[in-house]
Amino acid sequence: MNTTPQASKEDVLHAFSAESNPNADTLTSYLKRYPQYREALIDLSIELFTAPKFDEVAAEKVPNDKSKQAWSKFQSLLSPTDPASIASLSMDNPLSNLSDERFRELASELNVNRLFLSRLRDCSIQVATIPQRFLSAVAQALTVPLEGLTSALEAPPVVASGLRHKASGKPGAGDKITFEEALTSSALSEAQQAALREMKDE
């Protein structure tokens, strides 16, 4: 109880509801200290005492689509500047708009070659297999939020126009390669591959 005897009714009631274990003794001390709020304190004590203890309910599994649906609704209500809003996720791929020079520089900063970085840019690598440390380094070098970068790279792979006609169906997530496959098939030096493997999460 940190309130003064002259505290407002609202402050006193708040202090009582923030007591860890409001019981008859707690109520007694409040009644003695704030006789002017007697009825309000008694009513509040009864409400608090009879309120169900929701934390004790074991959560049953809510169908995934139902909580997903609730999440989408929640997300749609957020302001566009909210870090969790849909708008924050729909940023353009920050690797697509780089000049050739900046692209080369970035490859060198990250200690990878241009082929590897192109594969990353074209969303050809499964994001879930990319080490967080590497993604963070890319996001930092590009000064973009990690969340936005990750989301942008989760887009379907960009297929070079010459190859598009040869594909029988639309490219999907299945067409992406793993981080490890990208390491071994992008003509990276042994040292570069080793440095990138070092970043793996496990």
Binding site: P52, F54, V57, A58, A59, E60, K61, V62, K66, S67, K68, A70, W71, F74
Partner: peptide, 11 residues
């Protein structure tokens, strides 16, 4: 959010 929602629904 989904954890919260699941527990809220159960409560």
């Amino acid at each position: 959010f989904c954890t919260f929602y699941g527990r809220l629904e159960a409560a």
